[in-house]
Amino acid sequence: MNEDMIVCRCEDITLKELRDLIAEGYTTLDEIKRALRLGMGPCQGNICLEIAAREICKMTDKKMEDIKMPSKRPPISGIKMSELVGDNQNEK
């Protein structure tokens, strides 16, 4: 099978890159996230984390239930700095 397909659209990561990394011994999502930036783009792993978890299961003979998920920190979606520093004085 051609492994040149996109797993994480935000960070442009292919199935091949993911599988190579798992084969090297990166078998937790946290490690993979740090090594590849998988799940760190705008969608925050909504799409790719499950696909990656499934690949780990396949390659290491684990069950989905046993894969530990990385944390989900706020903010959930992109926000502007101006929102945070608060230009609330401009409020009507």
Partner: peptide
């Protein structure tokens, strides 16, 4: 956008936090 330990939810509302 987030839930914090002090039981507060942050919201970005029409570009304001």
């Amino acid at each position: 956008q987030g839930y914090y330990e002090d039981k507060i939810v942050t919201v970005s509302y029409q570009n304001k936090f």
